[in-house]
Design a protein around this nucleic acid. Structure first.
Lengths: 334, 334
DNA sequence: CTGAAAGCGCTTACAG
DNA sequence: CTGAAAGCGCTTACAG
């Protein structure tokens, strides 16, 4: 057998028509059990493999979901992507993934490629910037699209948005720091002007205001390097600051490294809280207190929502917020 | 326009035949420049998008590459996957990815799914265990398959293998530790009996033998938790041990945390070297010395090799080893 | 340089 | 419950 066997080969071998083979393939109930077994045997004997490209041409979907991520090297997004892919796989879908590296131009390109490949739906944690092209293309494609983790397109009717409850995370983290006796709490990292930064900061500012305290905001790149740099700056310029709530765990881990370098002890003297609770947070020294977004559970929820939309036509709400919690570890404890 | 436009719609609009549109689509040189422009305009006007599933049915490939990874949550593999995907994207290929979580059964399932989706080639960092089913399926599919990072199937003629030069990494790391004045060096982590463990350990044992020293091997899970646990064990059971070469960076980072917990200072007294040089290694405290495998460059090399095989029929050598180096940081320095 | 025809491997009504 | 026929949107020779 030089070429790959088709349903016709299987049909001949099983002594039925190719329609019957097709019905067996799709588990149609109308085929007699005996015939079904016969066809399955013929499939095994001929080494038949299903050709989804052919199937896709007639019916609609190919069981392919596109996953577009703004920064796949960031552990938070990695954990999200991995959990999503596995949940999709368990439901019989394959995942085609692309990293946009925060580049709107690349994003438009990969979204276009995915649409050409006939993805049935698209899950996107979008890059910021000139995103209209990509979203218009998704709009035209007429497929379900979910914005996750970040909302950059305002059409949440067409592109429903799901993310953890960032403001609440900011609140509980700030409250915790106050309870631990923090006098002056800084908010560190996150680019100014972005929604996610604004939301995470909002809970912080609100809680401080209630407590009658002044905020101290040092926005910047959400990276380890920025956190490390800020650790030195805080010690020098804000000696009264005795706690930091960070935009994300990377910044917080950077601060911990910076404190090590400066010989400043973390915990009782200087309290640090991160955001996201990436796996590494628990494995650092000292272990990092962090706002837990349950990225694995979040990913599974997104998959459930997407497949309900795809398979049952149940469109998700325009905006959905998932609950967050605080995991208290040594970095914020006396 | 309710249905998606096809080449026929474009052809009508441009006033040419659909063959001509197809030729323009594939950049065939035989079309007059004027006609080409006319067709492109018609494509833009109709909002045409290329249907790869249909194209795939006639020609062979769809520009899809499958990437199967044994542990996508491990930063080393994540960095690899991300660099691979971006390099493929730059060459016009989409990446369908799956995490097998070290599960041979899942692996067989996802490999089957990818073949059904018509991937043109497959890059696999395989799980160990009952892998025959998956490899036989890939064999039958008749597509290029590269084993990377780990070799589990012996048919390297059919499934060429590429990995960093692990034994050399073991050698240079051990030599470095000896040069730093280490008296007794332990090799920590990596499951016994696996090739990768054996290779990384081989360089260590060989170098120690040359130096007339005895090895001290503590194999175990390649995880942070194991490293952390071993830090305590080493102090208690092997007080003379003053250096550790770790199977990978996760184990090494675990040891660093264990040393922090035990109040043991790392660097001058106790030297630690990791393997892989994941991004985190440079951002820990103390910064971790590690065997650099240049995973980004490695990924790009794999893509070049795969596409040369796919597009030009140049089959890769059965086995290829890429160079490694040592990045010396504070964890192994006086 | 361009057009008409056949066919890739399936699914989908529609008969029987 | 099963079969014969049409067609999904392309590409591929083959004519002109």
């Amino acid at each position: 057998m030089d070429r790959r066997p088709t349903i016709i080969d299987v049909a001949e071998r099983a002594g039925v028509s190719k329609s019957t083979v097709s019905l067996v393939l799709r588990n149609a109930p109308s085929v007699r059990e005996e015939t079904r077994a016969q066809v399955r045997r013929a499939m095994a004997e001929t080494g038949y493999v299903y050709n989804r490209a052919a199937a896709q041409m007639r019916s609609s979907g190919a069981g392919l979901i596109g996953l577009v991520i703004n920064d796949l090297r960031n552990p938070f997004f990695t954990e999200f992507a991995a959990s999503l892919q596995m949940a999709l796989s368990a439901r019989g879908y394959a995942t085609v993934v692309a990293n946009t590296d925060e580049d709107a131009c690349l994003q438009e390109q990969v979204v276009g490629a995915m649409i050409e490949h006939g993805v049935s739906g698209l899950i996107i944690s979008p890059a910021y910037g000139a995103v209209k092209g990509a979203f218009d293309a998704m709009e035209r494609a007429g497929i379900p699209v979910m914005q996750v983790l970040r909302q950059v397109d305002a059409r949440t009717g067409r592109f429903p948005f799901t993310a953890p409850d960032y403001p609440e995370g900011g609140r509980i983290a700030t409250r915790h720091l106050l309870e631990q006796g923090a006098g002056r709490i800084a908010f560190v990292g996150g680019l100014a002007g972005r929604d996610v930064t604004g939301e995470r900061m909002a809970g912080y500012i609100e809680t401080l205001k209630t407590a009658g305290k002044e905020p101290l905001v040092l926005t910047g790149k959400p990276s380890r390097a920025f956190g490390r740099e800020v650790a030195a700056r805080l010690a020098a310029e804000h000696p009264d600051c005795d706690a930091a709530l960070c935009f994300n765990d990377l910044v917080a881990l950077g601060i911990l490294v910076g404190c090590h370098e400066a010989g400043r002890s973390v915990g009782a003297d200087f309290r640090v809280v991160g955001f996201d609770d990436i796996e590494e947070a628990a494995h650092f020294w000292p272990p990092l207190t962090s706002v837990r977004c349950d990225v694995a559970g979040f990913g599974q929820g997104v998959v459930r929502t997407m497949l309900a939309w795809l398979e049952e036509g149940v469109a998700p709400p325009k905006v959905r917020r998932t609950p967050v919690g605080l995991v208290v570890r040594a970095s914020s404890r006396a």
